[in-house]
């Protein structure tokens, strides 16, 4: 089962003894601060976890797959995530088959 905000806040409630309301708010604000920062065009570096970077993509030719019509894909900013060394190592070590 995938990890969701509900499970993260339940964990903060159990482990740190925050009220359910505060635990929920803490999780919401955590992701909101990261979004706000990226929205302003600034990189987010979470040591031990990874970096969220922004890349600017130029306009490129695209096509409507249904109609075959040519439509340009507009220039856009996209978020990319680069996992840090520590996270990569942890994932690699415990998921080797």
């Amino acid at each position: 089962m995938a990890l969701t905000k509900a499970e993260v806040s339940e964990h903060l409630y159990e482990k740190l003894g925050l009220s359910k309301r505060d635990a929920k708010m803490m999780v919401e604000e955590f992701f909101e601060e990261i979004r706000t920062c990226l929205e302003k065009g600034e990189q987010v570096k979470l040591s031990g976890f990874g970096n969220f970077d922004l890349r600017v993509k130029n306009e490129r030719p695209g096509r409507n797959p249904k109609t075959g019509e040519d439509i340009p894909i507009s220039a856009r900013k996209v978020v990319t995530f680069r996992p840090g060394q520590k996270l990569k190592a942890r994932v690699e070590e415990s998921n080797n088959d």
């Binding site: 995938a2 990890l3 903060l12 740190l16 803490m26 955590f30 031990g48 996270l87 415990s94």
Partner: peptide, 19 residues
Amino acid sequence: ATKEILEMMAETLEGGDRI
């Protein structure tokens, strides 16, 4: 709390699960 959130996310991926 901030550190717990990040640790829980890392543990989830470590366990092979999605977030």
